[in-house]
Write a protein that binds this DNA or RNA. Structure first.
Length: 762
DNA sequence: GTAGGGTTAG
């Protein structure tokens, strides 16, 4: 390569350049970098490789290295083509699953007036089938007719398969019927294709026709039928077919059993799964990695995590696929600690984990309430050099939203833009949700508006975002927009709209949509809808109507419904109904400290201090453990009492002492409510609104006893709502001198000028 | 050179 690099400036040495390229290609496995240098050298010397020999070699070389951009670039510069080389390159690209790249060579071939080659067309058709792209497939069909190669056995078979995969069954039949000689391959294609498109009767008839025409079906024919039955929603028919294959003397392979196991997983049929497992053991197919994965998946989906682990433990050398199946199964069954442990073990064993493994573990954490772990694992994934894909991003973003890691979420946005995956409906929807949860509803809307395609989840993300921000009018406007765009709102959409109406006090609108939802959309009201309605009526002061609605519910009211009533009672200080709601809540959620605290709040506001003590005693007797949030509520409660002047000076000092103790305890536990919250001063009347209006989202209010001289009451506003990291950090820094602990210091970075930021760049 | 598969996803 010394020769190559030193010769770039001199045209006269161009022959040396060519020799250098030649010598590179003569090696059996030339490396990428020197070849690129050589190619660049040729271009710099003005020697665009017009020579068919060099072009072909370079094309094949880049295709083999999956360098799509180089292939496309080079193919455009070809002047004297070599049909054989093109054929090889297309095949290489198709085998590497670079279907679009393979098809991108076709226009070039056409412009060069290369004759349609029966060796190129099947590979190109395979690419059309895989994408799928019916228009290009049809063009290739036309090309084969012009070139009179359409009757070629391979071309015709590939055409049939392409049409089936592109869901053009009638076209497939036409080509198939015109074939004079039908081999086992094209019969198999038709059978699998018919079954996939739900034409199962035809598929079975075709199996008989095939036999009577003298062609012997093979294992692939039957396997294709199993896969088709599974895909068209007839998974229960796969096991009888497996038995039939066995009785006809077919030696089943890993494809047969793993496909049937997949059918059992889809319908969560444990009995069927166990029968196949028995068969697997008998036939000793359990050593096949695809069978292991399918078994793990089946047990995981059937809720048998322990059995799944037992299967995994029998594998001596698990491959990455089996590891991934185990991680997914553990995650599905909520066994997040086991998943984390398994993941760490895989790493310790040196198993080469891939993007699926990392995505699975990130998803496992973000779906099981371990948001910080999800973010940390994602950073480790990047350190390990594993590049995220379009699946990873929607797995990561909920964690960003939950802990308001806006910068990391933004980075995911930029990454998606760079990698061209922003158009993915899952990526887009999760970005909308993340921005909304991080307090950036405007950004959420910008992403939503730019989405090229949307599904119900995308709509629900933006409607839910507006609901979360208390922007009920916008939520309603979007609901109307959905109607205009002929997108049918679902149950979740209405939960969002009703919740928004409830928070904004749009009582009449809420009532109307609750009615419309049932009448116009046939959606049965769920407990979530009822909880919103109870909250809606309760906030409007219509507590008796709210209670009446609960009594008339045709589903059993749960803790959320009674909780909504209790919260409404807190707003209007209705002790009688509060006691009724609390009684139900203590039955339904005996260990939920929040309910006890809420009731004691209501008593406290009414000055019923003996009752407050009684509730506290009940908590003690019941052994209810307070969570940190409750402790903070209790602190706030005490502050309320101090401010309300219900206690004498000596009592006040005891309360203050108690507050200090509680604060110490919180610090000892390492909790600071401010990790997720922005702290803002608010007026007393707003405070009440915020506390009640966003009680779930805002977590708790914190009364900070700050100076001996006074008792400034600070209310925490959720970062999700206002998204102002800097304000949060300023507040934290202001109070840090008073030894307030900041948990997860990794998330916070203090700049020299005293300002702060949270999240990390990546 | 044409036909069949398991594991990740809002």
């Amino acid at each position: 390569m010394v020769m190559v690099s030193c010769s770039l400036s001199h045209k006269g040495i161009s022959s040396c350049m060519l020799t250098a390229v030649e010598s590179l290609f003569q090696r059996s496995l030339p490396s990428l970098s020197p070849t690129r240098q050589a190619h660049a050298g040729l271009l710099k010397c003005g020697l665009v490789p017009g020579d068919a020999r060099h072009t072909s070699k370079l094309l094949a070389f880049y295709a083999g290295h999956r360098c799509v951009a180089d292939v496309e670039f080079l193919s455009r510069s070809v002047t004297r083509p070599d049909p054989f080389a093109f054929s090889g390159v297309i095949s290489v690209l198709v085998r590497s699953h670079l279907f679009s790249a393979a098809l991108s060579l076709l226009p070039c071939m056409l412009s060069l007036r290369l004759p349609p080659d029966p060796f190129i067309l099947p590979a190109a058709l395979k690419a059309c089938a895989a994408l799928p792209s019916l228009p290009i497939g049809r063009q290739i069909h036309a090309l084969s007719l012009v070139g009179e190669v359409s009757s070629d056995r391979f071309v015709a078979s590939a055409l049939v398969d392409m049409y089936l995969k592109c869901a053009a069954v009638a076209d497939a039949y036409q080509v198939f019927d015109e074939m004079s000689e039908k081999c086992v391959v094209v019969w198999s294609s038709m059978i699998a294709g018919c079954a996939t498109h739900g034409r199962t009767e035809e598929a079975f008839q075709m199996l008989d026709r095939m036999r009577s025409s003298g062609v012997e079906p093979n294992l692939i024919t039957f396997n294709g039928l199993i896969v088709g039955l599974n895909r068209c929603g007839r998974p229960h028919e796969t096991l009888p077919l497996l038995r039939r294959m066995h009785s006809e003397g077919f030696e089943l392979d890993e494809v047969s059993v793993s496909s049937t196991l997949s059918a059992a997983s889809d319908v969560e049929d444990l009995t069927m799964g166990c029968q196949i497992h028995g068969y697997v053991i008998k036939t000793r197919l359990e050593t096949k990695s695809s069978v292991v994965s399918a078994l793990l998946d089946m047990y995981g989906k059937c809720g048998c995590a322990d059995e799944m682990i037992r299967v995994f433990d029998t594998v001596t050398t698990p491959d990455v696929g089996s590891c991934n199946a185990l991680l997914a199964g553990l995650s599905r069954n909520g066994r997040v600690d086991d998943a984390l442990k398994a993941f760490a073990e895989f790493q310790a064993q040196g198993i080469k984990l891939n993007v699926v493994s990392w995505t699975s573990i990130v998803a496992c954490c973000s779906q099981n309430g371990k948001d910080m772990d999800a973010l940390q694992l994602f950073r480790r994934m990047q350190s390990a050099g594993v590049e995220p894909n379009a699946v990873t991003i929607p797995c990561l973003l909920p964690a960003c939203g939950n802990v308001a890691a806006l910068l990391q979420g933004k980075s995911a946005h930029c990454f998606s833009l760079r990698k061209g995956i922003l158009a993915d409906v899952y990526v887009g929807s999760s970005l909308v949700d993340m921005y909304a949860k991080c307090g950036r509803i405007t950004d959420a809307r910008v992403v939503f508006d730019a989405m090229p395609s949307r599904n119900i989840v995308s709509w629900n993300a933006i409607v839910g975002g507006y609901a979360m921000h208390g922007k009920a009018k916008d939520a309603i406007e979007l609901l109307l927009s959905m109607k205009r765009n002929r997108h049918k709102p679902d149950s979740v959409t209405f939960v969002c709209v009703l919740s928004a109406c409830s928070q904004a006090g749009l009582t009449e609108d809420g009532e109307r949509y609750f009615y419309e939802m049932q009448r116009d959309y046939g959606i049965t009201a769920s407990v979530e809808h009822y909880a919103c309605m109870v909250s809606l009526l309760g906030r409007a002061g219509r507590l008796d109507e709210a209670y009446e609605l609960i009594r008339k519910m045709h589903v059993e009211p749960d803790g959320c419904v009674w909780g909504a009533l209790l919260s409404a009672c807190r707003v209007h200080n209705n002790v009688t109904l509060a006691e009724t709601a609390a009684e139900k809540l203590f039955e339904l959620e005996p260990a939920n400290a929040g309910n006890y605290v809420l009731l004691s709040n209501i008593y406290a506001a009414k000055g019923m201090l003996d009752e407050v003590d009684r509730v506290r005693d009940t908590m003690k007797t019941m052994g209810v453990k307070k969570n940190p949030g409750c402790s903070w509520i209790e602190i706030r409660n005490k502050v309320h009492m101090l401010l309300a002047g219900h206690k004498s000076h000596s009592q006040m000092s005891r309360i203050t002492e108690k507050l200090e103790k509680l604060s110490e305890e919180m610090k000892r536990l390492g909790y600071l409510p401010s990790t997720n919250f922005v702290l803002q001063d608010v007026e007393e009347q707003d405070k009440e609104h915020i506390l009640c209006g966003h009680s779930e989202k805002l977590a708790v209010a914190l009364g900070l006893i700050s100076t001996p001289a006074g008792t400034p009451l600070r209310v925490i506003k959720n970062l999700r709502i206002c998204g102002d990291c800097h304000a949060a950090m300023k507040f934290i820094s202001k109070f840090e001198g008073r030894e307030i602990l900041v948990r997860d210091t990794n998330r916070y970075h203090r700049f020299e000028d005293g300002s702060c930021s949270c999240g990390d760049y990546w």
